[in-house]
Design a protein around this nucleic acid. Structure first.
Length: 271
DNA sequence: CGCCAGGCTTCTA
DNA sequence: TAGAAGCATGGC
């Protein structure tokens, strides 16, 4: 990977198979938007980013400092996904998935945003999830250049479920408030989840009303980069029944979450 | 219109 | 303790 620091933007070259747009919009994050010029816009950690990918380079319109402290990690660009995908290819279906959908990276999202987003995702479809999250940010986030920040847990903890009516989140509103309160008062300890084995995070997150196994796994995978977390939604359930009735392949051990993301997108997009 | 959505809680047997 | 019903809303 070649990282060129220019005045006001960063250029990436030799970035392997990384596909910024696919990673941003394959169902793991819900706030990235592509405009008519193929430019992606996103807000993470209170920072706005414009980014454009062409055949051989990726332009990130950000300062050198923000790149080093935020975006480099967020996009997980230093992990060797080529090697990971090669290992996964020991399984036939995973081989097809990584070949057909190359370039997906797990985005290292903020834990609270991941938790809140996947609470909203339950029994819901992706277009509507995006709408609810957008209204959440517009109503309770801070306005900055490029849009609104994701409201933090402490902000939402002061509200009542009825205050979230403008989101039209339905029964999920009370879950969001419960999560915000338990996260901001420390009853659910993000630092400890970060520094503990995945099993602790599973139990800790499920102390929140409205968080079951699936939402917990998504939070651990996308918010805490526990890449062996394995969220099973309706699509993965289908994949398991159709392709893996005898269990998930061993080559995915340790990175089951990454394997899951490739299969999820492949199955949803091409079947 | 009816079925479904990156599920979970609550009720019931 | 397993399985079904109910849940808010709207995409398709």
């Amino acid at each position: 990977m070649e990282i060129i620091k220019n005045d006001g933007f960063i250029t990436l070259k030799d970035f392997g198979s990384f596909d910024l747009g696919l990673s941003a919009d394959c169902g793991q994050a819900f706030r990235w938007k592509k405009d008519e010029n193929e430019v992606w816009h996103g807000i993470v950690g209170g920072k706005y980013l414009k980014a454009k990918q062409t055949n051989d380079e990726i332009l990130l319109f950000t300062s050198s400092e923000d790149f080093d402290t935020l975006w480099k990690d967020y996009f997980d660009i230093e992990t060797d996904y080529t090697a990971i995908c090669q290992n996964l290819s020991a399984d036939e279906n995973l081989g097809k998935a990584v070949t057909r959908c190359p370039g997906i990276h797990i985005l290292k999202q903020e834990p609270w945003e991941a938790l809140c987003s996947f609470i909203i995702s339950q029994n819901n479809n992706i277009p509507r999830i995006k709408g609810i999250i957008e209204r959440l940010c517009e109503n309770f986030g801070n306005e900055i250049e490029g849009g609104f920040t994701f409201p933090d847990a402490a902000t939402l903890a002061k509200l009542e479920p009825e205050d979230l009516a403008p989101l039209r989140a339905g029964f999920r509103a009370k879950y969001i408030i419960d999560a915000a309160r338990k996260v901001s008062n420390g009853e659910v300890d993000f630092d400890k989840i970060k520094n503990s084995p995945i099993e602790f995070g599973r139990e800790e997150l499920q102390k929140i009303c409205g968080v079951g196994a699936k939402v917990a796994e998504c939070t651990l995978l996308y918010g805490f980069y526990k890449v062996d977390a394995f969220p099973i939604d309706v699509w993965v359930k289908r994949i398991m029944a159709e392709m893996y009735p005898n269990g998930f392949p061993e080559c995915a051990n340790g990175v089951k979450g990454i394997a899951q993301q490739y299969l999820f997108h492949w199955r949803r997009t091409y079947f």
